[in-house]
Every structure is written in C-alpha cells, then in structure tokens.
Nucleic acid binder design. Structure first.
Length: 393
DNA sequence: TCTGGGGTCCTAGGACCC
DNA sequence: TCTGGGGTCCTAGGACCC
C-alpha cells in the first residue's frame, strides 16, 4: 500500500449460505423454511437455515429436534459440503477480480484489502455494490458487505444489516460505530464472557467502554483483556493476523446411540486414523501429536494427547497412539462421541518426506500407494476391521 | 427434544534445564 | 540456609467462531 493511501477493507459474508445454496439448486424451495443440518429424529443440530425458517425461531446450532418442534413443516436437508465448497470457490473468484488480497476466512466469508483501488473500481460503496450485484447475477447468491478502515470493524459491520446489507463505516468513526452497538454484537465476546460481564454489572457497551485497560485485563487476562479493550473501540485486535496454514486436523463422530463396546470404538478410531493420515498426506504435512477426544452420555467431554519424539510414519502409528490413549482415559461409561486429531502440524518436521519417504518402512509405502489409488478414484483399500458391524451392546 | 463437526487461540500447572 | 527466575515442552481444559 502506497504511503498516504487510505486503508479500505471489505468483509463479505454469504447470507444463510447453505440454505441459499439449496434454494439455488431447487428453486421450488424459495421462500420456504429450509433447515440444513441433521435429519429430524437423529442426533445433531441446525447448520444453517433460511430467513423464512428464522421467523419460526430456528437458528444455527439449535438441536434439530427443537427446530422440528418449532416448525415441523420446514424442509430439512442434509449438508452437501462439496457443493457448497464449489459455489464458495466461484464466489471467491469474483472477489479476486477486485483485489489480489483476499483472505478466505471460512467457506462463507472473506476479508479483502481494497486500499488504493478507487481509481479502478470507484468509491468503496460503488465497488461493494458492484461485487454484490455480480455475485447475485453470475452465481445467484446474496451477500452482505461491511466496509471500514480495518478488518475487524468491516467484519462487525457486515453482520449488522443482513441479508444483502452494505454498511460503510467512514474512516475515523470506528469507535463511534462500535459504541452504538450492543454487547452481543462484539465479535469474539461469546456467551460465557457476556455472562461474566453481566455478573460484574457490565451490561452495555457504555459500561464496558468506561473500564480501563488494566481493569479489563484483570478480569480476562492479558490476551483476552487486550482483545476486548481494543475490539470495543474499533481498533483491530488482529483477528486475521496469523498465517492461515492449518495447525491441526481432526475427525469426530457422535454415535446414533451411546456405545460401550471397546472393539467398536477402536474400529472407528482406526478409520479416523486412516482418514487423518490421508488428509495429512494431501497437505504435505506431518505431525507427532495425536489427540483423543471422548464425550460421555452426560456430555462430560475430555481429551488426552500423546506427543512422540518423531512424526507419525503412517496411520498405524496414529491408531496405536489413539488406542493407548483410549485405554488410559476411558472409564467404561457409555460414550456419546469419539474423536481423533493430529496437532502441531509441521512443527519441527520436514513434512511429507519425513512422514513417508525417509522412514523407508514397507507399511508407509503400502499406505501411500493406497492413498494414491484412492485419490485416482480406484477405490479405497479398506482394512477388514473397518467393515461395518453393529455395536454389540 | 436436548446439545454436530471442524477449527483457532489462550491459560495454567508441572517437568526439566540453565 | 529457605528456597531466584527465565525458558521450553507438554498436557488438559476452556472460550470462541463458522
């Protein structure tokens, strides 16, 4: 950015993305209450719902059973992530036409540095309107855009006028813009933090803004306090600062009914170990830390991890670690969920070479061949252990 | 009617070393 | 005698977000 150029950031959010994607692919759904997520009668939550569904009180993360109770006549659809990813890529490609600096924040959000683009695209509001119209006309999806001098305020602004909103916060008015919001609009301040603030009698932005930085930090610690203090004043606390390279991967599943059969759980973990190592391979990354996650029938959730001196050389190492952690951590109570993850990706390792090639062991080579075959669509080499069998309890 | 799955970052305590 | 202080690694849990 040239010296003297004003900073201009756009934050773009796709409106009710998964539900909108379903309406795009099936126009007969338009205007109906559409709920994308788990199927009614099963364990799970609402992933996204249409604005028509929101009028019944349905919202993201709500148990699907409650959504069904609120609106049994809604259209309940499963998540089709591959389709949404494809649409997302097309939308992001439109953004790329306006600036090379597009940070893809999630499947339905992007942060763009539009500084210095006025000669190309006109005023920020003209450029934003152009992007909004193009995404609507070329792809058929609705977006909301926030414009501000930093990424944080742009992000918050994008959420204040959904759907199809376009909110411009003029430079210099960031603090005033934030001060006029409700506490719950502060991105990064969730239910627990709000409850803590309420306990202390801080129930409005005005009261929060009256606190000194030392006072906020004494409540929430250095990092948390600093974040809240800056965010409330419209100073970017650095939400998209770090590298976007993934630092962990994981897979977890909630059982349809609680499970006490150890062999069944181990079979699930073996499948997860293979899936994780295959993803690791695809990323060219490595890890030497396995993390097991358990959730009991009463929702108590715990985790255990094991860090090895050297990166895992294949899925059998990951599986053995998982089995050891299960042995150590599981007290035999009915399990609702089991999950497996790999953390510390690439820390102190040389990536894929270390994962597969330098080890030279036969198993790793067999596995690599299997993954390569699967990626070519030749089918997955599946161990006998993974052939579905019902829980024995 | 309960409460998904995929991530990120931070904290706090213990071990161990200098 | 009465116990420094910093640094790193590891672990478990928690808060938050989409």
């Amino acid at each position: 950015m040239a010296a003297g150029t004003r900073s201009v950031f756009f934050h773009i959010d796709l409106d009710a993305f998964f539900a909108s994607a379903e309406e795009l692919d099936d126009p007969s759904l338009a205007g109906k209450p559409v709920v994308v997520g788990a199927a009614p009668g099963h364990r799970g939550v609402v992933s996204t719902c249409s604005y028509a569904a929101r009028r019944y009180g349905i919202h993201s993360a709500m148990p699907i059973s409650e959504a069904y109770r609120l609106c049994p006549e809604a259209v309940f659809l499963p998540v089709r992530m591959a389709r949404y990813a494809e649409l997302s890529s097309r939308v992001m490609a439109v953004f790329q036409d306006y600036t090379p600096d597009v940070v893809r924040v999630s499947i339905d959000e992007a942060s763009m540095d539009m500084s210095g683009t006025e000669r190309l695209w006109g005023s920020p509001s003209a450029a934003a309107a152009s992007i909004r119209d193009r995404v609507q006309d070329e792809i058929g999806l609705s977006i909301s855009i926030g414009v501000a001098a930093n990424r944080y305020v742009a992000k918050v602004a994008s959420g204040t006028m959904k759907p199809a909103g376009l909110v411009v916060v003029p430079e210099g008015e960031e603090a005033a813009f934030m001060a006029a919001l409700r506490l719950k609009d502060l991105w990064g301040v969730g239910a627990k933090t709000r409850a803590r603030l309420t306990e202390l009698g801080i129930d409005s932005m005005e009261r929060l803004l009256a606190l000194s930085p030392e006072c906020v930090s004494s409540i929430f610690g250095n990092a948390g306090g600093d974040f809240i203090y800056r965010a409330a004043r419209g100073i970017d606390p650095g939400i998209y600062g770090g590298e976007s390279k993934s630092r962990s991967i994981s897979s977890e599943t909630t059982f349809e009914t609680d499970v006490v059969d150890r062999e069944y759980v181990e079979g699930v973990l073996l499948g997860m170990a293979e899936e994780l190592v295959s993803r690791l391979y695809a990323e060219g990354a490595c890890s030497r830390c396995a993390v097991l996650k358990l959730r009991y029938d009463d929702f108590e959730t715990l985790s255990a991890r094991e860090t090895r001196p050297a990166p895992f050389a294949g899925s059998s190492g990951v599986y053995e670690a998982a089995r050891g952690l299960l042995e150590r951590k599981w007290n035999g109570r009915p399990l609702r969920l089991v999950g497996l993850g790999l953390a510390g990706l690439d820390e102190g390792g040389s990536g894929q070479a270390e994962l597969f090639e330098e080890r030279g062991d036969r198993e790793a080579r067999v596995e690599r061949a299997g993954i390569a075959a699967a990626r070519k669509g030749l089918g997955k080499l599946t161990r006998a252990r993974l052939v579905p069998r019902p829980p024995s309890d």
